[in-house]
């Protein structure tokens, strides 16, 4: 009996391995992060819209986050199955280029306009968001109006932040403080430390603590309140506008050298900065669109904080100094 079952399993395995790929229309494989392709993410709508225009099949592969996406590409190397990588952020670009897996897109990407006028010959932005301190209006009436006020404010009013060693928002805060304070960053962290309730491994843990009411402030995005206003019809959670300006996170996509059908891949990149794609972004990815949408954004987006100044460090500079700055942060945060 056991032998029969084994041989059936073996036969099935052999069959499934040797079954030839169905001859069919072209396929495009896009590697991205998981929340992009979840039921409520942009993925399903983007897929539908693109497949209408291309007579092809759009295939998403989702990994945990942007960092995991880059790691996955490094692991797969030249033999990667990806045609497009969508979901790296500007901090990762230098490292991504160093892999030698990407090639310049050669497209006119002027449709994509993001604050700070970021542009690149290899990566095209598809959305962006400014980092911000989001606070609970029911627990806090006097939110900080600047990074300085956050750093020097009442230690009894706590904030939860993410760890720059394990998460991209955590790295964002590190770079923001560095942009504003420069060499004085360690002193700023030593002060801010008194207000930090705890440092979580990722955004989800931090935001979970915040929405459970454990802490009145969390490090997140200016766009976070839009979710609560649109989906939960509440303006309880608001982002604090900082007078120095806000650090930006820009999400980009790039074309891989090994793409099977480059024309199709480029067609997708063009589609990405067209209204059909951009319309989907705000209320699914909860980020700001990087190019024109066909209709104005929902009202909630008009109520969001509009940073007066945008900070963005060059990707090379970040890659070069990240470890030293993280060490600096560790020392300042671990002091007693």
């Amino acid at each position: 009996m056991r032998r029969t079952i084994l041989s059936i399993v073996a036969a099935a395995a052999v069959f499934s391995l040797s079954a030839p790929a169905k001859a069919q229309e072209k396929t495009l494989t896009v590697y991205t992060y998981e929340s992009f392709i979840s039921d409520w993410g942009p993925g399903p709508k983007v897929k539908e819209a693109f497949e209408k225009s291309c007579t092809c099949k759009l295939n998403f592969v989702g990994v945990a986050d942007g960092v995991a996406l880059l790691t996955r590409l490094k692991l797969e190397g030249k033999g990667t199955g990806a045609d497009i990588a969508l979901g790296l952020d500007t901090n990762l670009i230098s490292e991504a280029k160093a892999t030698g897996l990407f090639e310049p897109h050669g497209l006119d990407a002027s449709a994509a306009k993001v604050p700070g006028n970021y542009s690149d010959d290899t990566f095209i932005p598809y959305d962006y968001g400014h980092f911000a301190v989001v606070y609970d209006t029911q627990a806090m009436t006097n939110p900080p109006k600047s990074l300085k006020e956050l750093v020097e404010g009442d230690p009894a009013q706590k904030i939860v932040i993410e760890d720059p060693r394990t998460s991209t928002p955590g790295l964002g805060l590190l770079l923001w403080v560095k942009s504003v304070y420069g060499d004085k960053a360690p002193e700023a962290w030593a002060k801010l430390r008194r207000r930090v309730l705890t440092v979580t491994p990722g955004w989800s843990e931090a935001y979970g603590l915040f929405t459970k009411g454990e802490v009145p402030m969390v490090f997140s995005y200016t766009t976070s309140p839009a979710y609560h206003m649109v989906e939960e019809k509440t303006d309880r959670y608001q982002a604090a506008s900082f007078s120095e300006g806000h650090y930006i996170q820009i999400e980009v996509a790039g074309l891989l050298k090994g793409a099977k059908d480059k024309d199709l891949a480029k067609q997708f990149l063009k589609f990405m900065v067209s209204p059909a794609f951009q319309d989907v972004i705000p209320t699914t990815n909860w980020m700001m669109p990087a190019a024109k949408t066909s209709e104005p954004l929902p009202d909630a987006f008009g109520k969001l904080v509009q940073p007066a100044e945008t900070f963005l460090m060059g990707s090379d500079e970040v890659a070069k100094n990240r470890q030293a700055w993280i060490d600096e942060w560790l020392t300042a945060m671990s002091m007693n």
Binding site: V67, A68, L70, T71, K74, D163, R165, T166, R193, V196, L197, T198, V199, T200, P201, E205, L209, Q323, W329, L330, M333, S334, N336
Partner: peptide, 27 residues
């Protein structure tokens, strides 16, 4: 996760965090 979330700051870090960081973040 427990150590990072409830530890209150990076003074509370286990080797596992460093391993995760060096493989996932720094590769």
């Amino acid at each position: 996760t427990l150590v990072l979330m409830l530890g209150g700051g990076p003074a509370a870090t286990t080797l596992e965090v460093a391993i995760y960081q060096s493989l996932r973040f720094d590769f």
